[in-house]
């Protein structure tokens, strides 16, 4: 990505990292995407309530700055593996919401042609190797992708997103160890939203900070406020640079919060209304980023309103596209189990 011009950069010398690193246009696009993630998930939730989407879904509302901040320094052909709470990662890596809606509606125009749904949303062309229904399932796969990058000398960097729950899976430990031993260009991003389903990290995890576990694998462990876009992006920027220079992996712990329950079955009995209310009112990542942009003169009320309107239209158009798209034929149930031989 192009960086801001020198003159503009000088006038921003005392601002936080991203305001020095990126142009006003790029930063407004970040706000646009954060809104797109939020409204996409609200649209998906509403469609679920109306019976247009079946199954379940795991919403990342409240975690938008984490997805956007991590993906900010990535190039289009850099790769990610994602989680069951992966809608934000998918949009942040460049997916179109209409094809995501189509996937959620089970249509042939969806990213997985209706075979994956929310939990397996992917966009391979944009480097998203897929969300994963298995906690920690994507972490070794990301290490494998990073091994490919090193062996094929493509220069690609791979990001593996996972939640706090995954840090107690064996796959996490095995994968981090191998990535460190082989000095692979991979960044492990733990989005710690405080709860693995209902079990808090305090009750499930022996270390205070998940980033502390990086020490066991001789890699930097970085803690960021996952609700502040600039903090996340700065940490990601450093980790990407380190990975691209062949210096090996980094573990970033992005401390954040999900406003919604774990999934559609959650009765929210493990946390208080006050706790949720506090995060929504005082630490909402979009509100925080928006006020910074305003304060530093990167956007005004009209600009924000224009973004909100554009996003509302994209969401409405996306849902219409999904509704109008065809369902796969039942005769095609057996497709894609094996690679079709020419």
């Amino acid at each position: 990505m192009a960086t801001a011009s020198k003159a503009a950069a000088d006038s921003r010398a005392n601002l936080p990292f991203v305001y020095r690193q990126y142009s006003a246009e790029q930063l407004r696009e970040v706000l646009h995407k954060m809104y797109l993630i939020r409204r996409f998930e609200e649209g998906a939730e509403e469609s679920y309530m109306r019976g247009l989407i079946h199954g379940t879904m795991h919403l990342s509302i409240g975690q938008e700055a984490s997805a956007m901040g991590i993906c900010m320094p990535l190039a289009e052909d850099d790769q990610i593996t994602s989680t069951h709470r992966g809608h934000g990662h998918c949009i942040a890596k460049g997916a179109e919401v209409k094809r995501m809606f189509a996937e959620f509606f089970g249509k042939t125009t969806g990213y997985c042609k209706g075979r994956g749904g929310s939990m397996h949303i992917a966009d391979v062309a944009k480097g998203n190797l897929g969300a994963n229904g298995i906690v920690g399932g994507g972490i070794p796969i990301a290490v494998g992708a990073a091994l490919s990058s090193k062996m094929m000398k493509t220069g690609k960097v791979v990001v593996s997103f996972f939640g706090d729950g995954a840090n107690n899976e064996g796959a996490f430990h095995e994968a981090l160890n191998m990535a460190a031993v082989w000095k692979l260009p991979v960044i492990f991003v733990c989005e710690n939203n405080g709860y693995g389903m209902s079990t808090s990290t305090a009750r499930s995890t022996a270390v205070k900070n998940i980033a502390d576990r990086a020490a066991a694998y001789s890699m930097p462990g970085v803690i960021v406020n996952g609700n502040i876009f600039s903090e996340v992006a700065e940490a990601s920027h450093k980790a990407v640079e380190r990975a691209r220079n062949g210096e090996g992996p980094t573990l970033i712990e992005s401390k954040t919060y999900r406003h919604r329950g774990h999934s559609k079955s959650d009765r929210n009995r493990y946390r208080t209304k006050e706790e949720i209310e506090d995060w929504m009112s005082n630490r909402d990542p979009i509100t925080l980023f928006e006020s910074e942009l305003r304060e530093f003169g990167f956007i005004d009320d009209r600009g924000i309103e224009a973004i909100r309107e554009a996003v509302a239209k994209e969401i409405a158009d996306g849902i219409e596209f999904a509704k109008a798209s065809p369902s796969p034929d039942v005769s095609e149930t057996g497709n894609y189990v094996y690679t079709e031989q020419a």
Binding site: T81, P140, I141, V143, M151, M152
Partner: peptide, 21 residues
């Protein structure tokens, strides 16, 4: 040579296969 990590090792193989190796 991999560490004694069958789960992780198999996953690394899967990830490498998906990305061109």
């Amino acid at each position: 040579d991999t560490p004694i990590s069958e789960l992780g090792g198999a996953g690394v193989a899967v990830g490498a296969a998906v990305t061109g190796m």
